[in-house]
Design a protein around this nucleic acid. Structure first.
Lengths: 402, 402
DNA sequence: TCCATCTGTTCGGCGATCGACCTAAGTCAC
DNA sequence: GTGACTTAGGTCGATCGCCGAACAGATGGA
């Protein structure tokens, strides 16, 4: 079973399966041999072979000739996603860093690199850097540029997903309406999918760590606070693509002023920047969320208390979202999740106190299991799922045939 | 253009369209003639005719022979959903009422009836009443029982949609895990779809009043407060089917005790029952939400002020949900929406103060446009969309052919 | 060694779809 | 009016894709 094991967003459709659908079945791990496919889809074995042959001919599938696991008859030949030539890129653009990862089609990392880079330098500079880095990674992994199938990009601001353009991103001056997909189409000739960074982190978390869940919230507690939403196995982006913007939801009973002009915003109460500022006011050496983490790890009482209270504030808001959205899994990530003992205790405490029993009955609240390149991998997953979508695969086969 | 005019949840898929898909196109209003279908799907005109002929033969489609609207050539024959023999039922079970509506396949009401009936009488008594009522309505509308295609049911509590069974419904004693679909399958031989009443009201509102929107929240402010969620044109039910349960989200700065054991719950602050109780404490004659409405309409100052404040409380919570979910339309309905001038003013005030500009930029907050039988119609729509789903239609044609 | 069992391939048959051709039924220019 | 033009829809042979039966391959077990 591969990375996308049993828990594809939805079990691929089964009736009158096209070649692309067959590939989805193989990729999902629900079938391993031609005979499996015939049994599951109801297609004739001859038809299945035809589909599989086409997939093999175009390099989508590999046949593992050896080892069958016979059950008293001719041993089957195992099929699996071919990971040879193809690759995708996942790009994680942060406020002050840029991470680029080259992944094979199973999601495994072939090569990756992180550099400090200010997003405020603007699209030309930042994307130019990505372009150079990606070429370097392709060389490092010994892949031809043509092997690149698609590119996923996570950016720290709201994006109109269908066009891949940032819309009024607060911390990305110069990026408003910049056509990121066109930039990559011109350079690499492939489709680029652009999404909010928290969204792609949620995607990575669901696909890699919780493949069996279909309703997941990923809360990122870093400098600010955001939320990625997986509904029915797919990313929920909302009407304008700004869904999950929970940093300015008001926390009950708090009047902390926020840079947005309101007061009591979750971000102003529990965001890493706010905690650092308040610790600095106490005379401690803290300028950012990572300083807060350092202080907590060193056992500083004020920092521990503050993070715990931040967890409660997050939990207070989250309790409402759990009632509203009814997820089965909540994942807490971001820089502050590095001290998740303290943070999660506060979150759990508040959620279980305020949410309905029906909603919390099977609810899991867990720390993020994906590492620091979650965003890059999530962006890569976006690219993989585009490149291997049944539609896309069928188009590729039809184009090659015609 | 029919009830489901331009704004079906998603434009029906177009590639290699089956007969069911063709029907979906006709129903959505995106095509009106055979030639339209051929143009839109890319199918050969002969194939289209074959599909349409089958649909006509089985009574799904009618051909409007007259009037074409020629554009210089032979005038086309218009196609439309046949509303002749078929019908569906929509059942709205409330705490103390039962409404049954008989609808044709466009969603038009053929006959309907409402009776006072306590849901606490239990499933046998209540569903027995529905059965009798439905037979009476079929007779009234001069329809044979076999013309019934499906039944939709809205109940005032959480439901596991796939099985149609209520789960721990607080105000429905005796209904926990009761197999409602089986009851109707035994009596009428058709599929019954059971959902929460607020969900079906949201569905009715979206399909009838806001067909072009895909992300809608329907807030019902009645005795309690609940929310129906339309995401990407479909009902969002969450992991356990309890999504939208916003009555016990905490309102900032309020410590009103709630029957759930917590304090400051939205329902305890702004629910009709809570308002009535507080008005009664002021010496006014108020026992329920309808009394509150009466007092507001008669111009009672305390009642007006209280409803306005309730609107603010709803808006306070809604502001957070808008940031999180990013809908393009919010509809406020329920008994208290009868005085929506006061209620909506409070809601809008709070939402526009607390929500992000990006999320509120194109956000509409409007009173419900559907009347008091919204739930019954919404339940009926659930039934219609099941009966006319491409899968279901294809199955029906295949069964008749075989 | 031979049979049962399971996998995968080959190939003829069949049904669905296509598309060329034809008829129907209107508009428009003159 | 009349005929050219345009668009809608039907008819029918050709074609393509899928099915399924027969066959070949490859193993375990009697």
């Amino acid at each position: 079973m591969g990375l996308y094991g049993d828990g594809m967003p939805t079990a691929p459709d089964v009736s009158s399966a096209s070649a692309g659908d067959v590939l989805a079945l193989i990729r999902s791990g629900s079938v391993e041999t031609r005979a499996d496919i015939a049994r599951l889809t109801g297609l004739a074995r001859s038809t299945v072979s035809q589909r599989v042959d086409a997939l093999i001919a175009h390099g989508f599938v590999d046949e593992d000739n050896a080892d069958g696991g016979s059950t008293g008859g001719r041993p089957p030949r195992r099929l699996q996603l071919r990971t040879g030539e193809h690759a995708v890129a996942g790009v994680d653009l942060g406020a002050s860093h840029c991470r680029v990862a080259l992944l094979d089609l199973t999601g495994a990392t072939l090569a990756q690199r992180e550099d400090p880079l200010s997003i405020a330098d603007g699209p030309q500079a930042v994307l130019g850097h990505v372009e150079k880095t990606l070429h370097a990674l392709l060389k490092e992994a010994d892949h031809a540029p043509q092997s690149l199938q698609a590119i996923g990009v996570g950016v720290p601001g709201p994006v109109e997903f269908t066009t891949g353009r940032p819309v009024d991103p607060p911390i990305m001056p110069g990026w408003h309406q910049y056509p990121i997909p066109e930039f990559f189409a011109d350079r690499f000739g492939v489709r680029a999918l652009v999404d909010n960074d928290v969204n792609v982190m949620a995607l990575a978390e669901q696909r890699l760590a919780f493949p069996e869940t279909r309703y997941l919230l990923y809360i990122k507690v870093g400098t600010g606070i955001g939320c990625g939403i997986i509904a029915d196995g797919r990313l929920h982006r909302g009407a304008q693509g700004s869904a999950g913007d929970i940093g300015h939801i008001r926390v009950a009973d708090d009047t902390e002023p926020c840079r947005c002009g309101n007061s009591g915003c979750l971000e102003a109460v529990a965001g890493g920047a706010a905690l650092a500022r308040r610790l600095a006011e106490l005379g401690l050496d803290a300028a950012s969320g990572s300083d807060v983490v350092r202080l907590v790890k060193s056992g500083n009482r004020d920092a521990v208390r503050m993070v715990r209270e931040a967890g409660r504030a997050v939990g207070e808001v989250l309790a409402g979202l759990v009632n509203f959205f009814n997820p089965d899994t909540v994942v807490v990530g971001g820089a502050l999740a590095a001290v998740h003992d303290q943070l999660l205790a506060g979150v759990r405490e508040a959620v279980y106190r305020r949410s309905h029993p029906l909603a919390t009955h099977v609810l899991r609240i867990e720390p993020s299991r994906t590492g620091e390149n979650a965003a890059a991998i999530g962006a890569g997953i976006l690219a993989i799922e585009h490149a291997l979508s049944p539609d896309q695969v069928d188009r590729a086969l039809a184009a090659a045939a015609g």
